[in-house]
Design a binder for these strands. Structure first.
Length: 293
DNA sequence: TACACCTGCTCCTTAACTCA
DNA sequence: TGAGTTAAGGAGCAGGTGTA
């Protein structure tokens, strides 16, 4: 059984641990179990409950009112939330609970509903990436096992591949991108989304995929006409040396412009970058950069 | 408008846990 | 074993809200 500490609930719901304790003291919608040493722990049902309560509370419902609602009433109120931000957060919460309960069909239905109503771009930016961020949090606290992660990332991957297949633009631009993930990097979703953006803008791209050495990627640049190189780094090992990596990039791809995105870019703080290297600390920055083409 | 109540926060102390 | 970290819980404060 998956159990969560109060800290996990704080991270996932955004509600401070002390506030959660106060709510528990004042209302009765949370009834955590205790360890022998009196430490609270929560099960999946309670995680779902606190996510729902946090969302209602965030969108103006008073905590005293929420506490008087039944589980069904809370669900009903959540469905009534019409603000787009509330809808997105509700979808993210539903995806998390579907993943935790390994309800693959339900997970796919939630995602399909959102994509159908809002389109893939909004789904990726407002639901899929916020969901992946929270899943990362669950992963680092050992609440998601590899099977759960693979199940859901494969579904998202399939959706992106189908979208790439059907992406179309009337005009074909005369620049070509080379897309790949460097050695040791396997988190392909962001790169697939970049591929989708480029294809829908009529920009040809050579997609090499995950775990590609810089030498192999550079060999492609020598044989094919490539104007831009795009790499995404989600996570790296402890032995990853930023400066060495930048030096290798510089050696292999100069004078081609290289766009580098992903959470790892935070490690570059203060590092002086070669002129042709464009580092995007947030994925949103990378996407708006690509949209400028 | 005054007052009571609600809500969320900080501060503090104590205890349990972790790790070198 | 001791230092550092994390969590529990009480007290009290400030700002918001409802009501007479």
């Amino acid at each position: 059984m998956n159990v969560f500490t109060i800290k996990d609930l704080e991270n996932l719901s955004g509600i401070k641990a002390h506030t959660i304790r106060m709510w528990e003291q004042r209302y009765d919608f949370l009834k955590p179990q205790r360890t022998e040493s009196n430490i609270r722990y929560y099960d999946g049902q309670e995680l779902k409950r606190i996510l729902n309560v946090a969302l209602l509370n965030k969108f103006g419902f008073r905590i005293s009112n929420i506490s008087r609602m039944s589980e069904d009433e809370r669900q009903e109120k959540l469905l009534e939330l019409t603000q787009s931000l509330a809808c997105e957060e509700r979808f993210v919460s539903e995806l998390i609970t579907a993943m935790m309960e390994m309800e693959v069909k339900r997970f796919e239905e939630i995602l399909d509903n959102y994509i159908l109503s809002k389109g893939l771009n909004k789904a990726v930016q407002h639901v899929i990436f916020p969901f992946l961020e929270k899943m990362g949090l669950l992963w680092t606290t050992n609440h998601v096992n590899p099977a759960q992660e693979h199940l859901v990332t494969n579904i998202v991957r399939q959706k992106l591949i189908v979208a790439i297949e059907s992406a179309y633009s009337r005009v074909e631009k005369k620049i070509t991108f080379l897309l790949f993930l460097p050695e040791g990097e396997f988190h392909e979703l962001s790169l697939l989304y970049v591929y989708y953006i480029l294809k829908s803008k009529g920009i040809p791209a050579l997609y090499l995929g995950a775990n590609i050495s810089l030498t192999d990627a550079a060999a492609v640049c020598k044989r094919k006409k490539v104007d831009y190189v795009y790499l995404h780094l989600t996570s790296v090992t402890n032995s990853f040396h930023v400066n060495k990596f930048l030096k290798d990039l510089n050696n292999q791809f100069t004078p081609l412009p290289v766009i580098l995105s992903g959470p790892v870019m935070h490690k570059l703080n203060g590092t002086e970058l070669p002129e042709h290297l464009h580092c995007k600390q947030s994925f949103a920055d990378a996407i708006s950069f690509l949209n400028s083409f």
